[in-house]
């Protein structure tokens, strides 16, 4: 097998791998942002996320906040 026939194939595989890697890191970043929003909702929200209806998230997760040491009223 000559180097000339192998090189383009390797290039394609490498660029495909780069595309996959970029896509996967974008998915991971989106997942991390969602995770931070979820943690905010459970541990920090004081009626901002569902402000029209009251402090529902805070009261529902109330015991969890106390238990895991998050500041609570």
């Amino acid at each position: 097998m000559s180097l000339h026939s192998a090189a383009p194939h390797t290039d394609t595989t490498a660029s495909q791998a780069a595309v996959t890697r970029t896509r996967d890191w974008l998915i991971a970043s989106a997942a991390a942002i969602l995770a931070l929003i979820a943690l905010y909702a459970v541990f920090l929200d004081n009626g901002t996320l569902i402000s029209a209806t009251g402090d529902y998230l805070h009261e529902f997760a109330h015991d969890g906040r106390h238990l895991f040491g998050a500041p609570c009223h």
Binding site: A41, E59, A61, G64
Partner: peptide, 9 residues
Amino acid sequence: GLVVAAVVA
């Protein structure tokens, strides 16, 4: 809510 909060966390 405690259990739900723990699972979400």
